[in-house]
Design a protein around this nucleic acid. Sequence first.
DNA 1: TTGTAGGCGTTATCAT
DNA 2: ATGATAACGCCTACAA
Lengths: 356, 356
Amino acid sequence: MRGESEDKTTEIAQPAAPRQTLHQPSIKDIAKLARVSHPTVSRALQNSPLVNAATAEKIRRIAREAGYRPSAVARGLVTQRTRTIGLVVTTVADPFTGEVVSGIEQAASDNGYCVYLADSNADPEREKKVVQAFAEQRVDGIIVTSSRVGALHLPLLSEMGVPVVLINDQHPGLVAHSVLISNMDGMHELTEYLIALGHRRIAYIGDQSGYYSDTERLDGYQIGLAEANIYARPEWMVHGNGKPEAAFRAMEQLLALDEPPTAVCCYNDMTALGALHSIHSHGLRVPGDISITGFDDLFLASYTDPPLTTIRQPMKRMGQLAMENLLKLMAGDESVPPIKIKAEMIVRGSTAKVRA
Amino acid sequence: MRGESEDKTTEIAQPAAPRQTLHQPSIKDIAKLARVSHPTVSRALQNSPLVNAATAEKIRRIAREAGYRPSAVARGLVTQRTRTIGLVVTTVADPFTGEVVSGIEQAASDNGYCVYLADSNADPEREKKVVQAFAEQRVDGIIVTSSRVGALHLPLLSEMGVPVVLINDQHPGLVAHSVLISNMDGMHELTEYLIALGHRRIAYIGDQSGYYSDTERLDGYQIGLAEANIYARPEWMVHGNGKPEAAFRAMEQLLALDEPPTAVCCYNDMTALGALHSIHSHGLRVPGDISITGFDDLFLASYTDPPLTTIRQPMKRMGQLAMENLLKLMAGDESVPPIKIKAEMIVRGSTAKVRA
DNA sequence: TTGTAGGCGTTATCAT
DNA sequence: ATGATAACGCCTACAA
């Protein structure tokens, strides 16, 4: 039961007490309750050693009882650091991105950062808008995942003067601090594996052309073939867009060839999903008639029929690593190296020896 | 080519120009450049009619050229509105949640709101922490999706004094403004459909017990059976946890029965995925030997083998609706009704007439 | 150990 | 139509 008449000091003509709707209490309210000055409250709440232990404890108790929450916006204004990062993705409604975001969020939260999420929908205009929004929110850093338009706005990004980390960017080379998977090695390994299984007619269903990850994976595929002295016939290399529907159509093309491939490397698991569908719809069997490989090791790669041989990307971990890199950068560490993730092949049921 | 020597007015002994690292320009910098006062800049940038059209245009031009971005944090401090919402999910790395988040983000962004994303990992402690973080960020509103712990912290939420919208909450009834799917109707429809196909031994693989959506779906299933005068044998009703692994085990139980079911209603698509796996591993066929139904209509439901008969939840749309409701609430509209989404059955290949 | 006095970058309320 | 001036809630000197 604290007294009600304690504000004698400021009692003189309080100009009709603005009668606020009793919002969150401010630091001054707590100070008044604890009969100390606001700076003391501030110090106590930050566990500063410069404040008497007993009063500090008392202040903390009072603050707790009053449900006091320091305003991050006021703090941000004075400290010029918001402890906030911006995260821009092409779309969260994508299993790969979802995992990455989850890893980032966790690492951010563990380190006292809040994350703004923005979905660009792969639309350059939208991406531009969200970056500007982040600038206005005065985020301390930015992470961009799998951007297909990143290059366009890197000037805009750098102009903000905050560190930027890119994950699997499709137009790399412009920003130093990124996290990426070794696309070439991964696809190379898959191709070698298929060749070891006796395959000779091996096709590749890619992403849209012009993207970095597709180019790298295609390289890995071509190198694999070249090393085995197999001529990579142009009609073996077709394009999808990273989603099943387009991959379905691409696979149809391959099946229509005079000599269809006995194995198909797909740009990613989603592409493999579409390819599987096409093959099944022709009454053919995987891996009996055709072997299929994916890339990513999405959750669903274990649950396709048959389960996919693929390359694992540690998506959650990649998110964490990106955030950790960003933390270092925000702390002023200049020597943050880009991170290259090693590809790991996961062999499952979608690949087998070529039919005799 | 603007002159370099134009700040005559303030040239007198600028105290050694703090030599800031040339951060973002402030409204005062723009004011100085435009030779007006900051309030005028503020007005011009808000397209206030109270400012001369010509000078307004000039100010806007200068601001643009200087790359000026008004600080949302300073604005938030004075206006007491951050145009920011908090979004707490159990995990983004879940296709269902991903879609919902995407819908929310889009609607938020379209209305000038930024969204904080927090991943509670289904951990009550974490969920509590993120809500507190949101409180400190002074978000204008909060959306919680599929919370399994929501009930625990609703007091905490309401204490913040901002509107809260729940999506498919597992402990409803405590907050008025939510978006949810008609679980019972959906599962009822599926059950009726299976019965119409001649099935009599129909099982149900649920979520963990105690959750609202599971209870409702179980109800729909039981009512469906009851209406057909089929006794729902207790051993037909088993529990998973919404994920494939647990569903696999649950399905194993069902297959071990003396009289295994000829059809199985699964709590959701993920559960159906596990059930499919189990059935296939026994050399049985879907729908030849057993019919299977899912719930959600995730992307992958079209790509299982066979594709799943299921109930569509318009996830993205639900996210949009939730955000739109929140916008109304934040605007002070008291009469925002809860939204109940109608279930829509999608018939695909995983269901067929019972074997003769 | 504590209190007083700025100031962070806006918007809002007065004047003029 | 524009300019002073005062908040907003906090932190950081500096003073006591």
